[in-house]
Amino acid sequence: MGVPDGMRAGDADRQAVADKLRASLDEGRLDLHEYDERLQQAYAAKTYGDLDRLLADLPGTVPTERAQVVPVQPAQPPEVVPDATRRWLAETWDGYFGVVAVCVAIWAVIGIMVGDIMYFWPGWVAGPWGAVLLVTTVNGLVTGEPQKWAAKQARKKAAKIEKRARKQGEREREASEGAD
């Protein structure tokens, strides 16, 4: 039984489509540009219909009207499955808190050394930077930036794995040529 096109897809479903797209890239059915576009669309997809359309023209998949994408059970418990929004927010705000903490620590040490409470200059670092990050965060959440970021991270990881496999293949080929 097919899944209705309008039903909401989950992260595991998006990953399953990303895996199928990767296989199609490896088979030469998609070029790198098409793969990149479809991968971004896969991670931004909201429904099974959105995911189905990404695979409709690829062999080995069922036409969209028969909804080839079926719900996938996550391999990990839901609380362990990485959340793209949470990870994106952590990366976006990562440096801010460390830099502000260092500035406040320097201000405090100087205040202790001088023996007087000075003007709180770290506010000039924290305030404007925090305001820019806040606007960036709100804008990013509205435009779906976490999903785009997750897709980019997945592409980087896939490229890294592919590069490692290619190097391993070259080493094995050199070793076999050296043995001949």
Rank of each mutant, 00 (worst) to 15 (best):
V142N: 09
D36K: 05
A105S: 12
D50S: 05
V80A: 13
A42S: 06
P146G: 04
P71L: 07
K20Q: 14
A42K: 03
P78W: 03
R164S: 10
P4R: 11
E172A: 04
A151N: 00
W88M: 07
D36I: 00
A150L: 07
R14T: 02
E145T: 09
G111D: 03
D19R: 10
Y35M: 03
Y43L: 14
A158Y: 03
E65S: 13
D31R: 03
C103I: 11
E170N: 09
Y96F: 13
K160W: 09
A175K: 15
R38T: 01
R53G: 06
Q147S: 04
V104Y: 04
L25Q: 04
H33G: 10
P146A: 09
E27H: 15
Q147W: 02
G123S: 12
E145F: 10
E172L: 06
R14S: 01
I117N: 07
L21T: 00
L89K: 05
A150Y: 03
E172Q: 09
E79C: 04
A45N: 01
G130A: 13
V72P: 05
L133P: 03
V102E: 09
I106T: 12
F120C: 03
D50W: 00
Q153P: 03
P59C: 11
L54G: 03
Q76E: 14
P71Y: 11
A84E: 04
P82H: 08
V72S: 07
P63W: 08
R171Q: 07
W129E: 09
E91G: 05
L30K: 01
T137N: 00
K167M: 06
W93F: 14
V62Q: 11
E162A: 13
A158H: 06
R87T: 07
T92Q: 09
A154V: 02
M118T: 08
D5L: 06
T143W: 13
K148A: 12
I117W: 14
V72E: 15
G28Q: 04
T61P: 02
A150E: 04
A42W: 01
L141M: 13
M1Q: 15
R8F: 01
Q15D: 11
E162R: 11
T47K: 01
E162Y: 07
G49T: 00
G178T: 10
A56M: 10
G60I: 00
K160H: 15
L51F: 04
Q73C: 09
A90T: 09
M118W: 15
A101Q: 14
G178C: 06
A42D: 00
G95Y: 09
E174L: 14
Q168I: 09
L51W: 01
N139V: 15
A131P: 08
E162K: 11
W107H: 05
P63N: 09
Q168V: 06
A12T: 02
E162C: 06
P63C: 07
D116Y: 15
W149L: 07
R53K: 12
L54M: 05
A151P: 00
A16L: 07
